Simulated assay, not measured.
Amino acid sequence: MRWVRVAVAVLLVSLVGAANPAWACACGGYLPDAESRARVFGENALVRFDGTQEEIVLSMSVQGQSKKAAWIMPVPTAAKVELGDSDLFQRLQSVTRPKVVTRKTYWPFRDLGIMGGGRGDSAGAAPGAAVDVRQQMVLGPFQVARIAGTSGTAVTDWLGQNGYAVPAGLAENLTPYVTEKWEIVAVKLAPKEAGESMSGATPPLRLTFPSSRIVYPMRLSKGASTAQTVTVYVAAPYRVDASTLPVADVKPELLYAGRVQGESYAQLAAPTSFLTAYSVTYRDPSRITDDFAFTRASTDEEFQRVRYVTENDGLLSTLAIVLGVPLLLGIAAAFIAVRVVRRTRPGQ
C-alpha cells in the first residue's frame, strides 16, 4: 500500500458566515470567532513511531481569546482519536532544555572574554455520496467527526453546512489529501463554561494510525497568514534526521537528541525511548510546499544545547586579581632590574 504523508491542519472557528477569515497556524489555520482577534503563533507536537504505527499529540499556542474553535486533521487511514496528556509538553520542554554551565569571571574583566567569561549558546461516503460521515462522538471538550469526501470542495461544503467557518483556499489545499484517499477528522472545541473564552494552549489531542514511516503534516500550513513556530518532538527507537523539509532552504534547529528514561516519561518507553527535538519558524508560510519527513540518522550520538552563565567570583577574588597582578609585575620588574645592574658592574 502506498503511504502518503500525514497532516494535522487547520484550526477553524465554529461560526457560520465568516467571510474569508485569515489563516494563522503552523498546521493550517486558527480562526477566532467574529468578536475576537485570537491567532495561533506556534504549535508543539510529539510524534511517536515504533516501526508500524505513528502517534501524533498536538497542542496549539493561542494569542488572544476565542469562544469557539475547531481542527481539521487529514490522516492517511482511519485514526483512533483520544485526549492527550495535559502536561506532556511541559515535561518534554524540561528534558530538552539547555544544560546550564557556569563560568567564573573577575571584575573588571567581566563580559570582556577574559578570565574564562563567555556568552551565548553552544552545541555540541456512502458509495456515490460526496461526503461520508463515518463516526461522530464527544471526547472531553471536543466534538469529533470522521469524514471522507470525493473532493476538497465537497469537504468544505460539509464543514460550512455544519457550523465551521471555511477560509478561502481551504478546498484547494485539501484537494491533494482527498485525492490520496485520506480521511478527514473534524474536531470542534469549546470552553467548559458557556460564555467563557479560550486562550493559551489548546488541550492536547492524540491521533494514532498505521504508518510505515515518520511524517509530520505541514502542507496545509501554506494558508497561514502570520509567522509560525513549530516544535516537533520525535520519539522513535533511534535518532532521526529531518530528511524532507516543508521549505527546502529553511533548516530546523536541533534542540535535543538522547534516550529518555524514568517514570515521568512513560510515553517514551521502549521501543520509542530515543527523543529527537527540532524547532523552526516559518516567517513566510506561503512558501511551504511539503510535509516533514524523518528518517533514521547515521548515528545515535546524543546532543544537548549548552547555555553559559557568567558569574563574578566575589570581592576578595577580585581584589586578589586587581592587587595581585600589579604586585607580581612589580616583583618581576625588580628582579630583572637587579640582574641587569649586576651584569653591568665591573668584575661581575
Score class of each variant (00 low, 15 high):
186 A>P: 05
214 I>L: 13
182 W>Q: 13
200 G>F: 01
167 P>V: 07
213 R>N: 15
154 A>P: 06
229 T>M: 02
181 K>L: 06
158 W>H: 13
206 R>C: 11
224 A>P: 11
228 Q>C: 03
188 K>N: 13
238 Y>R: 00
151 S>W: 02
161 Q>K: 15
166 V>R: 06
153 T>F: 09
234 V>D: 03
160 G>W: 06
213 R>D: 15
219 R>G: 06
178 V>M: 01
239 R>G: 05
163 G>D: 02
170 L>M: 14
154 A>C: 12
235 A>F: 04
153 T>I: 13
172 E>D: 15
224 A>Y: 01
225 S>G: 15
222 K>E: 04
231 T>K: 06
149 G>S: 14
175 T>D: 15
195 G>H: 07
171 A>I: 10
203 P>E: 01
188 K>A: 15
239 R>S: 09
159 L>M: 15
201 A>W: 11
227 A>I: 09
173 N>C: 04
186 A>L: 08
226 T>R: 08
185 V>S: 05
236 A>C: 10
223 G>A: 13
227 A>C: 06
239 R>E: 00
214 I>N: 06
156 T>A: 11
239 R>L: 00
226 T>F: 12
170 L>V: 05
198 M>K: 08
222 K>H: 12
212 S>Y: 10
189 L>W: 13
182 W>S: 14
183 E>W: 07
225 S>D: 11
214 I>E: 07
191 P>N: 08
216 Y>S: 11
193 E>Y: 06
226 T>K: 10
207 L>F: 11
228 Q>M: 14
165 A>K: 01
155 V>D: 03
158 W>D: 03
237 P>S: 02
232 V>I: 13
174 L>C: 08
180 E>G: 02
174 L>N: 04
